[in-house]
Amino acid sequence: MEILMAFVIGILFMSATYLMLSKSLLRIIIGTGLLSHGAHLLILTMGGLKRGSAPLLGEHAEHYTDPLPQALILTAIVISFGVTAFFLVLAYRSYQELGTDNVEDMKGTEPND
């Protein structure tokens, strides 16, 4: 499973990078979204997959999966939500102000007031 996940993560990173290298602002944002999914899965995979039950002491299990990556990812998910929202509004506003979604066209644009 870990090996399969390694390839899935690689493909997520690849698509994310390709999207981020494009010129459309929206595609860049979608790219960052994919990138964070890839990163989260990477952290989880590094900690080992399915090595015991969910990290709840109520399960009374012999082994538990590693709780630390999960805590880190939980933080990362919420942060990436905040960042994506910020990006999104930035894109939305610059589209309103500049009338373009193309980052190359925005280069060196002065505010119009």
Partner: peptide, 8 residues
């Protein structure tokens, strides 16, 4: 604190 859930 005991089951899945929390502030987030």
């Amino acid at each position: 604190h005991y089951y899945p859930g929390g502030g987030f």
